[in-house]
Amino acid sequence: MLSPERLALPDYEYLAQRHVLTYMEDAVCQLLENREDISQYGIARFFTEYFTSVCQGTHILFREFSFIQATPHNRASFLRAFWRCFRTVGKNGDLLTMKEYHCLLQLLCPDFPLELTQKAARIVLMDDAMDCLMSFSDFLFAFQIQFYYSEFLDSVAAIYQDLLSGKNPNTVIVPTSFSGQHRQRPALGEAGMLEGVEASLFYQCLENLCDRHKYSCPPPALVKEVLSNVQRLTFYGFLVALSKHHGINQALGALPDKGDLMHDPAMDEELERLLVQVPGLVNSATPEASCLPSRIPPRVGSPWRPLHHSRKVDAESDGSTEETDESET
């Protein structure tokens, strides 16, 4: 229960490690912005609600991007919020474009940068055809990796580029026996023949990176696992492998396993209960909708129609490149 190293840290490091001051500062800012509230409810109650919502992860809703990405806990909370708010998109099997996912993100965080959404979409679409449709779960898991490990991935991209252009970011690299079979450093022009970089070399660089990285990075053991399965891989190949890795998802701890993504009976019940109260939304479909445990709710009468737009017809014909998750699980 007691982790002793916590007690041995200097005060300042202990506070920094757990981002205590970040939240205290933010609490004060929020308090200043809501002075009317505190004269009504009292300061202690204001702080109670603030810190409780931080614990519950609801504190990031509708906040500015700089705050949302300020701590690992905030990032995880945002991912969870995004999943919980929009998982019905996945449930309905809707496929959306990058821009549409970006709109969803902006509903939760108005100044969410487009660049980050684009990067996530590149993982799903392997860096081409950026206007393609994506399934919710594909986008979510790619987005998770991109958003949570953003700084780490930037460094990885730089390393990858160095390796690709023949520069060696690490000076101490022993070529493995495998590399003898291929030509060691493919010149840029030969990319057609040998795509990507050699996995073991790549791993050595990443291992170094994880050691000195001050932001969060995925557990090195799992990165190794991802890279030990292949000989060569491309940057986007690596990101796809990371985003589909169960262990990394678990280590990150924000989202459930892919199979359970649409499964949240308590939330479903709550939703149904709320929907019944909204007149005009649930009409003829009510008897159907009340038999809840079915994994794919009836499409007719779904309140999430507005998201489900006219492109749907296209989606069903040319969405064949995507993995539609409903059939898998």
Partner: peptide
């Protein structure tokens, strides 16, 4: 505390 934010709440 292990969880300073919960502690503060």
């Amino acid at each position: 505390p292990e969880e300073p934010i919960a502690f503060l709440a």
